[in-house]
Amino acid sequence: MINEGCRLMVVDDELIVCKRLKQILEKAGYDVTVFNNGEDAVKKLELESYDIIVTDLKMEGVDGMKILETAKRKNPDTRVIMITGFAETETAREAFRKGVFDFISKPVEIDTIKQVIIKAQKEISGSKT
């Protein structure tokens, strides 16, 4: 399968989001690791690198912006997709400046997420070749 070997990290403080994204994305063949809070995700990022990160922006403690910073610092090739329920232009601009791949507003259909992930995959493979 095309998606196998693509390491995906999902961070969201909503448990159901974690569960469903993991389930759906794994079914689509991705290697998915989920984190229910920002702290654990950042810790993990310090140790390991992921191809694509799907993270919620607003979270208690360590938020999506911090994850974006850490991920980009550790591995600039990592593609970060940010999902937010509250899209402020200012925040979006900051995220793009920090190198976010895409900025998606909730509620969002899974197909949209999948397409963005695929787009990110293409970009990764494109940049590799």
């Binding site: 909503e14 159901i16 989001v17 469903r20 994204l21 389930q23 759906i24 079914k27 999902i83 329920g85 509250f86 507003s105 909730k106 509620p107 969002v108 259909e109 899974i110 197909d111």
Partner: peptide, 20 residues
Amino acid sequence: HELNNPLYNISLTVDAMKDE
């Protein structure tokens, strides 16, 4: 904005159901 969270949860769940 707050409503987005449960709605997102529901839509993901529905998506998962469709998927399976």
